[in-house]
Amino acid sequence: MNRKWVVPTLYILFLMLPIYGLLSMSFKTTNEILGGFSFFPQQFTLANYIKIFTDPTWYNGYINSLIYVVINTLISVSVALPAAYAFSRYRFLGDKHLFFWLLTNRMAPPAVFALPFFQLYSAIELFDTHLAVALAHCLFNIPLAVWILEGFMSGIPKELDETAYLDGYSFPRFFVRIFIPTIAAGIGVTMFFCFMYSWVELLLAKTLTSVSAKPIAATMTRTASTSGYELGLLAAAGSLTIIPGAFVIYFVRNYIAKGFALGRV
């Protein structure tokens, strides 16, 4: 008898359990959640979602988050592309050390950087802007992007570059017309990881904003408001934060394994 399905099914079941818990809570009222555990919503309600989509303090959180995440992803990838190219193609003094130490910024917890960033951004009036968060996240995402892209670029033989030069391509033309399309998959994977790290990062985003660029993660993690506990609402907000990630994963699903296989993620 074929029982190959057992283990994957259990795996997926356990994996989905917390997400199901969140989803089911989002369709309950706060009173029901506090009242006791039930597997299905007893009084099914869409009120939580309606509230999020109609109340600007809620939906602006999503918009703010998306804005700084997109800005960050674009900055990270466009800065990392030439850097990764240099690391993969040229030998220079201390290149290997520099490449490794790119990752040091990922070794410290973000909390370490929160205070200096806060002071700096307050001084140059970047505090509470989307750019502030986007730039702060570059601290983690640019090294990561360089690291991932370098892996993909090193998989492309150097002879490709030379063939292009022999064919008469100038460096910029080669880079844009030939090289970037060749590593498109790598760029996709890199963008995905930049997007995800920036999307889920809470501490810096929360510290560097107050009102006008407040991210959803900050809105979502306030447990109590003036109207008391709003657990149903928080669950609905949480469920919605999963959607962008799932959406991005769908586009890079075929390449993501390659990113992991390169050992760079």
Partner: peptide
Amino acid sequence: SVAMVYQAFINYPSF
């Protein structure tokens, strides 16, 4: 005015 062909087959993969 030089052209070169390598041992590994080098073509532009996206073209």
